[in-house]
Design a protein around this nucleic acid. Structure first.
Length: 428
RNA sequence: GGAGAAAUCGCCUAGCUGGUCGAGGGCGCAUGAUUGGAAAUCAUGUAAACGUGAAAGCGUUUCGAGGGUUCGAAUCCCUCUUUCUCCGCCA
């Protein structure tokens, strides 16, 4: 969400940015919102004048009453009634215009960073850098569900029975691996100076509508029946929600937080074969990082955030690459975004395991997240990134650490969390 | 879940028989005076958002949130949220 003042004084820059994102249908909105803004300011000026008049005349009544001049006071009351009538007609316009303006402002995309490559959709995202050799071993890598089943590590049939498609039972070593990865991820981030959080897993509708659009809400969020509560789709929802309408002292910045939560998503829409298994599911767990910082620091934190993910995956033997989101694939709120993708030796391609975003001040403006500075208050910059999200991450982990004999090697950093095991063996 | 009390400007607090209350006091903070320097003392200032203006300023809105009564609401009424105390229940 942009600053209306910025739009007012830089309409061409805003339009240029819309074109870069291939959202030409939104171009007319710029002039429209500027026009509505002018109307709003006029309505507000008129309303303010009337309110000022009403206030001052009302004060006279008080003075007259105090002096016991009842008749005169009655006379003045009539005057106020007239003003009030006029005010009522006019003032309805103000909130109406304000709401219309906000509606449009929510749709006008944030100004993208100059470094963002121009492109229409995800096919034009740009590979930035590869980390680790994308090895294809000389034996066949099975589908991840088959690998898990070879360890008796997954039960999708029972899950379908109890909960439906998109759920899973993890068991034995695979379940332990799942927990180990999360524990390791938590400690990995704590070691890098982040503060660990376990947030609420349900949030009120007022927070939901703050942190996402209506369409997202419909397609993602599960509602608790009979309660004003929704299951979170990511811990970012509760972690950013925590800062809504808040001030943070400048000297407390940056806030570097790492949160764990289960995530629940409806995942409305059809998915192909590669999205089966535990790739796209209604329930998963995620270690996330969230940063609230000064505006000038956000590019630096963006770099540090995605590097954390890369280092994490590399420490577990998984080759990754970074893919820069092109202008057309970038969500409207984001200034810049980069996907971390893990190598799949089975598919012989990379697939998304994390997404790092710098939202600039857009999220802060929308949610009123402010910094109390020495020289006045200003909006914070917010960023977020995935550390790791199993069980999807397990796909990459198992495929890259699978041995020819069907066993899976446990990389050194994970061993303390796996009871010291260097390898897990199949039951076959 | 039940009963009661409460939510005010960074913090503490006054106001809550409706008008002179955007709001008094203390602490904190800022500036100045005093001092060799500091402490102490004294003086002045000290919320946010929006509109308007070159600026000083002026205007509007905001006393947990939303709605209502009224010419006028921090103050009265309703709903919601949160906190505290007591009771009940329970990992």
């Amino acid at each position: 969400m942009l600053d209306i003042k910025f739009v007012r004084s830089n309409p061409e820059a805003v339009k240029e940015n819309i074109k870069k994102k291939f959202q030409d249908e939104k171009l007319p909105l710029v002039d429209k919102v500027i026009e509505l803004d002018a109307q709003y300011r006029e309505a507000k000026a008129n309303g303010d004048t009337l309110r000022a008049k009403r206030n001052s005349v009302s004060k006279q009544i008080g003075a007259l009453m105090a002096q016991g001049k009842k008749d005169e006071a009655e006379q003045v009351k009539k005057e106020v009634a007239e003003i009030a009538g006029e005010l009522e007609r006019l003032s309805a316009l103000e909130p109406e215009l304000e709401a219309k303006i906000r509606e449009i402002m929510l749709v006008i995309p944030n100004i993208i960073d100059p470094s963002v490559p121009i492109g229409k959709d995800d096919s034009e995202n740009v590979e930035i850098e590869k980390f680790g050799e994308p090895v294809v071993p000389d034996f066949e890598i099975p589908y991840h569900v088959d690998i898990m089943e070879s360890f008796n590590g997954i039960d999708l049939d029972s899950a379908r029975k109890t909960s439906g498609n998109g759920f899973y039972y993890l068991c034995g070593d695979i379940a332990r691996l799942h927990s180990s990865i999360l524990s390791y991820a938590r400690d990995f981030m704590i070691d890098r100076g982040f503060t660990y959080y376990v947030p609420p897993f349900m949030i009120r509708s007022s927070v939901v509508t703050g942190v996402m659009s209506f369409a997202e809400m419909e397609n993602m969020m599960y509602k608790i029946e009979g309660e004003d509560l929704y299951l979170i789709g990511t811990s970012e929802h509760s972690m950013i929600g925590k800062f809504i309408d808040s001030f943070t002292d400048e000297d407390k910045l940056p806030l570097t937080l790492t949160s764990y939560s289960p995530c629940f998503r409806k995942e409305v829409g059809a998915h192909g074969i590669e999205e089966r298994g535990v790739y796209r599911i209604h329930q998963f767990e995620k270690q996330e990082m969230v940063v609230v910082c000064k505006p000038e620091d956000s590019p630096m934190w963006f770099d540090r955030l995605w590097k954390n993910s890369v280092d994490f995956f590399r420490s577990l033997n998984i080759p990754v690459r970074t893919l820069e989101c092109c202008s057309g694939d970038l969500a409207d709120l984001k200034v810049k975004s980069l996907d971390v993708e893990a190598w799949s030796p089975r598919q012989k391609k990379y697939f998304e395991v994390g997404s790092c975003s710098n939202l600039g001040d857009a999220q802060a403006r929308r949610l009123n997240i402010k910094i109390r500075g020495k020289d006045g208050n200003y909006l914070a910059h917010t960023l977020n990134n995935t550390v790791v999200a199993p069980p999807r991450m397990l796909i990459a982990f198992l495929e890259n650490n699978l041995q020819k004999d069907g066993s899976v090697r446990i990389p050194e950093p994970l061993r303390p969390y796996m009871g010291g095991k260097e390898v897990i063996k199949t039951n076959r």
